[in-house]
């Protein structure tokens, strides 16, 4: 019974599309349906494919009622040679545009990066992709399909918990850093790389989403923005003077820790000129004075036991960042 129904549906579709085909070939007004256009390809590349190419119909690209959405040939090219087949015994010619960086199972080589990215940029050139040309990824021949999977119900790049895994395919250092002691919640799935970066190109450094490092960090950490009555110069200029955002062995996401971190910029005021070695370990680390009084300038938070307003202070008594 099911088979009869299938056959009946089949006939109905065939009839409809033959009619559509007829009209178009005759050059009359009726535009082909989007599905009819796709059928040029989905006739052979159907649900039996190993990759779920029909799943595209679940995505925004597959909303056939939206006139802007592409058909198969809009992105993969007219591919007349491929449609015609293997006429001269040398194998079926490749479609016009092959996406990716590896050859396909059938042995077709991927197209040049420019051809691949132009296929997407023809529609997606604005917004986040404004600075694509000349960006770090573009110069390194990264193409859209290296990261995005459009023939799937869910593009991992657009799912917060899955996105970092895609980026880590190339960015191995950052993958290792997300497993360190102090991190942003990337491994926990609460943040994704795109919360700070715009991989499509940006006006900021290192593909950051905003114009500068501080502007990017302050979108979530606005309490450090100020301006404060008493400022701390490295904070105004670049958060990464002290912090390393992907992961660190030193909490909270610091490159180094007091007193040594402070010693990298200060040598003169108060204890920044004093050397501390084993003293930082306190009595237990063997650095205390005999009689056992550790130096509060060296142990624990060291300088920051008292100089606590490290990002700046708005108290009239806070010129030394104590208050």
């Amino acid at each position: 019974m099911k088979r009869l129904m299938s056959i009946a549906l089949l006939c109905a579709f065939v009839a409809a599309s033959v009619v559509a085909t007829r009209f178009a070939v005759a050059g009359e007004e009726a535009a082909p349906t989007r599905l009819g256009q796709d059928a040029v390809c989905t006739r052979c590349h159907d649900e039996s494919e190993t990759k779920p190419i029909l799943a595209m119909y679940q995505t925004p690209h597959g909303v056939t009622a939206d006139a802007r959405t592409p058909s198969c040939q809009s992105c993969h090219g007219e591919s007349a040679g491929h449609l015609v087949g293997d006429k001269d015994g040398k194998g079926r010619p490749a479609p016009d545009v092959i996406f990716g960086s590896k050859h396909t199972p059938a042995g077709y080589q991927p197209s040049a990066p420019l051809a691949q990215t132009e296929a997407c940029l023809s529609c997606h050139k604005a917004g986040l992709r404004t600075h694509w040309s000349g960006s770090q990824h573009q110069t390194n021949d990264v193409v859209c399909s290296n990261c995005h999977t459009v023939h799937a119900a869910n593009d991992p790049m657009l799912v917060k918990v899955l996105q970092p895994g895609v980026c880590f395919g190339c960015h191995k250092e950052q993958r290792a850093q997300t497993h360190q002691f102090s991190t942003h919640p990337l491994d926990a799935g609460k943040m994704a790389c795109s919360d700070c970066h715009n991989p499509h190109g940006s006006a900021g450094p290192k593909l950051l989403a905003k114009n500068t490092v501080t502007e990017t960090c302050l979108t979530c950490h606005a309490e450090k923005r100020g301006p404060f009555l008493w400022e701390h110069q490295p904070v105004n200029e670049d958060c990464t003077n002290c912090h390393t955002p992907h992961g660190s062995n030193i909490s909270p996401l610091l490159k180094s820790r007091p007193p040594f971190m402070c010693d990298e910029c200060h040598d003169g005021p108060h204890n920044s000129q004093a050397p501390y070695g084993t003293a930082v370990g306190g009595i237990q680390g063997g650095g205390a004075l005999a009689g056992g009084n550790p130096n509060s300038n060296a142990v624990g938070r060291a300088c920051m036991n008292c100089h606590v307003m490290i990002h700046g202070s708005n108290s009239p008594t806070g010129a030394f960042l104590h208050h």
Partner: peptide, 16 residues
Amino acid sequence: FVAAPLLAQAQALDAG
């Protein structure tokens, strides 16, 4: 519309 050989069985998605 991309001219293609007359497809005897050109069909849309077989939702069945």
